[in-house]
Design a protein around this nucleic acid. Structure first.
Length: 882
RNA sequence: GGGAGCUUAGCUCAGCUGGUUCAGAGCACCUGCCUUACAAGCAGGGGGUCAAUGGUUCGAACCCAUUAGUUCCCA
């Protein structure tokens, strides 16, 4: 057979992915088998594949592929998220590039553009996932704004409203002046920023005195409606009942006293701007202060401010400092570091702003979700996130679910011309309901709420609605067959950043609508960072394009690279060298296969199986079983990189470096001999078992080799092959014996290297014992290139000597032995063993140790002692001979 | 400011109930090899005061306390 010397990933990838699809191997429908289900964390429909997706989805694919091989009905549901803010921003920008302003479009016109865009460019990311080998059931692809999915979202809104869990009210929200929408607390990122703390003097009414107030936001001065100090602060005791003048606008405002103010920060006096700070807002409520909103929605100074009208908030900040300085009202300016909130989506500085929004009460509804994690019903991996989860769930705030956008599910609330409001799904329903309150209403008098719902208000239903969007109205008892079969799903693989955004809320929704958790386990991946530990991001330009990596190293190589060093919950400091390692591994496997498939097999039956091959097969059977058990164990504990590393070492070290060398036919007269049929069959079997174990990590190369091994039937593919079984009994003694064999071979190689003896020159090994020949003697002869493996009861002179596991060995070296060197070496070894013996004996002579330690431990120490004594004895004997 | 975590080899990480020669793995590094599967390889090798200090214990990388550094979450 002619097989290329290096593996060509591209070829295998473009061959097998379409083949799998054609054979419908990814497809899942409910049947008699146990399901294994994963729903994908739906990427933004605007998204392009980045390293985070790569990591995340590779893990999911590994889990799904292994489950499939284990005989589960594996179902991985893909899809995308409509991502209100991100998508709307993208479409707005695109239109702007064409000279179209959003403001000039009607809602419907805008949505037509948005849908066009979505149809044309949306979901590229799903195509990209195919490149890495993701075995999703593409027929189940879902989008969070599909009609039935959206219906479910509205059903939930109406339902929760009717249950009294949703309310509308004026609250301080996080306002994104660029996206022109409210965002939730979780969408605000606090960054340390250099700011100026300006000390501004406020004139005290009817006096020539001033009170100084420190602020980082002087542009909100026009919105001040009080100055507040701590009642215990003696510096300001005289100001009781006094008023002060707000600079610039010269408004008279009271001085109020509240212990909220920290007397040690700034001057101990706080300007109170209820419209622009949550704490000030609370003070305003408490002291019934007026609220002056000095900013417009897009972050400019408003009419209400009475000065600088129309100026940008940051420009105004500069200008007002300058003006205040000119009026002599600035006492000083300090440079400080403070945390400023930025919008996750637009990166604009968030304004706390009062506005009318819809909220979901979180207190009661979140309780079952908290319990589910605390009582272990839903497992978080790694467990350390339980604390974080608990902390958040116990301090949860009501969730602001309205967004001032068009792209999304429009809030099903209807208003009439008389200030009545009803919540229901359709305008007709609303009309009927409103008629009761407002007899002469016409349907044209009805207005629907302008806002849409937060994206997370649809994605929190994801594990439910991808299977049965009608479950909200029909209820769990009447759920469709899919949901009944696949739900709760098994594993969710996602980033810790969205533990609250998404994971917690899915548990809430799952509990609320089915009484069941949405998944058993949540595997939290780390964040992919660059070598300097910076998060990979578009703006930093430090993220490689995963598709380029795939071209360079092959999908299998990149998959292995990503997972080699990313235990659950640990950030992955990505470096391309990992991919290189992955690629090298693929190539190693490729070449091992090339060797095996290139064997000339004895068809005459004349070649008998060598003892060394029998030994090799027996050993590897045991080794394979031992390692497989360990690998399975790693999987069960979600130790993905450990499972991969064990697989890697099983293949590279045990199989390639030892087993194949042991069974490789010899060369005689420059020609490779044929291999006996029995050894060949066993080796092919091992190769098949190994590539099955490798398949979840490296789907393409393993499928390719699977088909190179032999001609196979249409559906006989490794992707649906059965995961290997662990042998019920294992010859552990043989495994230990082989370790001695390995040591012996290594020793022989060392002697060759030290004495510069060619690997081709045959040596002899003599074991000092009367033992019957060991099972692995023929192996040692083969790997060590020995002329003979002999036994002797006596010491052998003029030989290199060493001890392995209490047995002495000799390699006769005729003229090559340097006595002084030998003495040196043996003395060094003697010293080490004497030191070791001493430490063991100290332990054993310690009465407290003997009294307290477990008997097994003491036995072990006794064994160590006697072993060391033996070893010392034999080394001393050797030294005596020299 | 409040909370949680982390610190083990040059790098990335294991180390599960405190007890085998327990101080490990992979990569990187060094030395020697183009040995007819593979130089994307083979054979060998060096490398760590387990952050610091104190304590508990017969015994500590592991348990406790303090300190330092660091990351994340919340305000």
């Amino acid at each position: 057979m002619d097989i290329a010397k290096t593996y060509n990933p591209g070829e295998a990838e473009s061959k097998w992915y379409p083949y799998w699809i054609k054979q419908q191997f990814f497809k899942s429908t409910p049947d008699h088998r146990t399901p294994y289900t994963i729903v994908i964390p739906p990427p933004n429909v605007t998204g392009v594949l980045h390293m985070g997706h790569m990591l995340n989805n590779t893990i999911q694919d590994v889990l799904i592929r292994r489950a499939r091989m284990l005989g589960f009905n594996a179902c991985w549901v893909p899809g995308t998220d409509h991502a209100s803010i991100a998508t709307e921003a993208k479409v707005v920008k695109l239109l702007a590039d064409k000279g179209i302003k959003k403001a000039e479009l009607s809602r419907d016109e805008f949505l037509t553009h948005a849908w066009d865009w979505k149809e044309k460019y949306g979901g590229i990311i799903l195509e990209q996932l195919k490149k890495l080998g993701a075995s999703c059931d593409w027929d189940r692809t879902r989008f969070t704004m599909q009609d039935d999915m959206s219906d479910a979202v509205l059903d939930v809104f109406v339902d929760l409203f009717n249950k009294g869990q949703i309310y509308r009210g004026v609250r301080m929200v996080n306002w994104d002046p660029q996206g022109l929408t409210a965002v939730s607390d979780e969408e605000v990122i606090h960054k340390e920023t250099n700011s100026k703390l300006v000390y501004v003097k406020y004139k005290i009414e009817h006096s020539n005195e001033f009170i100084t107030v420190a602020t980082t936001r002087p542009e909100t001065i026009m919105g001040d409606t009080a100055v507040c100090v701590n009642p215990k602060d003696e510096r300001y005791a005289s100001l009781k009942g006094k008023n002060v003048l707000v600079p610039i606008v010269n408004r008279v405002v009271p001085v109020i006293f509240d212990s909220y103010v920290d007397a040690s920060f700034g001057t101990g006096a706080l300007k109170v701007t209820p419209a622009h700070d949550i704490n000030d807002f609370n003070l305003g409520q408490k002291y019934k202060l007026p609220t002056i909103d000095a900013l417009t929605p897009d972050g400019k100074i408003s009419e209400a401010a009475g000065a600088y009208i129309g100026m940008d908030r940051f420009a105004c900040r500069k200008q007002i400092i300058k003006d205040l300085q000119e009026q002599g009202l600035v006492e000083k300016i300090e440079e400080i570091k403070n945390k400023v909130g930025y919008s996750e989506r637009t990166d604009a500085v968030i304004e706390p702003k009062l506005s009318m929004q819809w909220f979901l009460k979180m207190q009661d509804i979140s309780q079952p979700a908290l319990d589910a994690v605390l009582n272990g019903e839903v497992k978080l991996i790694p467990e350390k996130y339980i604390n974080t989860y608990k902390h958040w769930m116990e301090n949860v705030h009501d969730w602001c679910i309205s967004r001032q956008l068009w792209w999304g599910q429009r809030i099903p609330a209807w208003y009439d011309n008389k200030g009545n409001t009803v919540v229901c799904k359709t305008k007709e329903e609303a009309f009927e309901k409103l008629k009761a309150q407002n007899a002469d209403i016409k349907i044209t008098d009805l207005n629907q709420d302008e806002d849409v719902l937060d994206t997370w208000f649809s994605s929190w239903l994801w594990p439910l609605t991808v299977f049965d969007p009608k479950v909200i109205t029909n209820g769990w008892d009447n759920a469709n067959a899919d949901l009944k079969y696949y739900y709760p799903t098994n594993d969710l693989v996602t980033a810790p950043e969205i533990l609250f955004f998404w994971v917690a809320r899915m548990i809430i929704a799952g509990k609320e609508y089915t009484g069941l958790k949405p998944f058993n386990n949540v595997y939290l991946t780390g964040i992919v960072r660059d070598k300097q530990g910076r998060k990979m991001s578009k703006s930093l330009g430090n993220s490689p394009d995963p598709l380029d990596l795939i071209k360079l190293y092959g999908a299998d190589g990149v998959r292995v690279g990503m997972l080699l060093s990313s235990p659950a919950g640990n950030d992955l400091l990505f470096d391309e060298s990992y991919c290189e390692q992955g690629r090298n591994f693929a190539n190693k496997v490729w070449n091992a296969s090339r060797l095996i498939l290139g064997f000339e097999v004895d068809s005459t039956g004349n070649i008998t199986q060598p003892q060394s091959s029998k030994a090799a097969i027996s050993w590897f059977e045991n080794k394979l079983s031992e390692q497989l058990e360990m690998i399975n164990d790693h999987y069960t504990k979600y130790r993905m990189s450990d499972a991969l590393m064990s697989t890697y070492k099983l293949v590279w070290d045990d199989f390639c470096a030892w087993y194949l060398e042991m069974i490789k036919p010899e060369f005689i007269d420059g020609k490779a001999q044929a291999i006996d049929a029995a050894t060949h069959a066993a080796t092919i079997h091992f190769l098949e078992e190994l590539i099955k174990i490798m398949h979840p990590w490296m789907p393409f190369i393993t499928e390719e080799i699977w088909h190179l091994i032999t001609e196979r039937k249409e559906k006989d593919c490794i992707i649906v092959a059965t995961w290997p079984q662990v042998k019920s009994e294992r010859n552990t003694k043989q495994l230990t014996q082989f370790e001695i064999c390995k040591e012996l071979v290594t020793m022989i190689r060392n002697v060759r290297a030290q004495k510069q003896i060619s690997p081709k020159e045959k040596l002899e090994v003599i074991e000092r014992s009367q033992h019957a020949p060991s099972f692995f003697n023929s192996t040692v002869i083969k790997l060590g290139n020995l002329s003979a493996f002999n036994y002797s009861n006596n010491k052998v002179e003029g030989a290199f000597s060493f001890v392995i596991a209490n047995t002495e060995f000799y390699i006769p070296l005729a003229n090559n032995l340097n006595k002084d060197e030998e003495i040196q070496r043996l003395k060094k070894e003697l010293d080490y063993n004497k030191g070791f013996l001493k430490s063991v004996q100290i332990k054993l002579s310690n009465e407290k140790f003997v009294a307290n330690a477990k008997p097994e431990i003491i036995d072990v120490e006794r064994k160590k002692e006697s072993d060391a004594l033996n070893k010392i004895k034999s080394i001393e004997e050797q030294l005596a001979v020299l």
